[in-house]
Amino acid sequence: MSSVPTALWLSVSPILQRFNRPLISQLSQNHAIALWEYNQTPDEPITLEVACVLLHDYLKQLNQPVHLIGHSTSAWLGMIYAQRHPERVKSLTLLSVGANLAVDWQSHYYAMFKTLPCDRHTILTQMVYTLFGRQCPFKSELLIYLLEQDLLSSPSPNTLVEQVGVTPQLMSVPLFVGGSRDDMVVSPYQLNAWKPWLKSGDVLWECSQGRHFFHYMNSKLVSEKVINFWQSLEEKILDPKMFQSVS
């Protein structure tokens, strides 16, 4: 397989990267997929602007556009980039991203923190159930630790002071939007609210289960859907009718 990537997985939450690995492994069986990570330091402002500039520095070194794919806030970075540099993006795949782009697990956490008379650990325990379902005590504590670390290192724009809202824009690049029917962060309503922004050939797909990290719970199925989407784009390029002259 070529060392030049045809697809790029975006990650701005290194702490949660473990939940992306099964899907990356599945996709890599058919495509040369690379991983691009951004690790925000405590001294940086909470913004995706720096990450977008660094991503552009990487992609402009490649001699061909690539498929961008990401989950939650990482996917939102891909959308920002695709809007600014569509010539470098072959397609964009958004996983667990609603029509309010800024809605992520942290926005739900802070909303609960402001309304419930509970400490951080109690709310994070509830978030583990919301995101992953019921877990054994040991695994629950591990997931609580990961979420707590993500609160400290992710460039999510949501804070205790403000939970932001961002509306999509029409895009020229092909788009795949996927989510889960039982996701309590990005609800089916938020997922279906993408329809006004979809073009002919774009895909909106809802997995039957898997919650917010459905791509981790169902990596093989999600891989099949994404690869089918990528292959459909290649078939359009190779379709001989595309090269027929108009009489």
Rank of each mutant, 00 (worst) to 15 (best):
V50F: 06
E49T: 06
A75Y: 02
R84Q: 15
L48W: 03
E49C: 01
T47P: 02
L62R: 01
I80Y: 10
V50C: 08
H56K: 10
H56F: 11
I80M: 08
H67N: 14
G70I: 01
K60D: 14
L77P: 03
L48C: 06
E49W: 00
L48I: 06
Y81S: 01
A82R: 06
W76G: 00
A51M: 09
Q61G: 15
Q64W: 10
T73W: 11
V53W: 09
V66D: 05
S74G: 09
P65V: 12
D57A: 05
V53I: 14
D57L: 04
E49I: 03
Y81R: 01
K60C: 15
P86Q: 12
L68F: 03
T73N: 15
G78L: 05
Q83N: 09
P65L: 12
G78R: 02
E49H: 03
A82F: 04
P65R: 14
V50M: 10
S72G: 04
Q61M: 12
I80N: 09
A75K: 02
H67L: 11
Y58E: 03
H85C: 10
H71L: 05
L77H: 01
V66H: 05
N63W: 12
T47S: 15
L48M: 08
H85T: 10
L62I: 14
P86G: 13
Q83K: 09
L59Y: 07
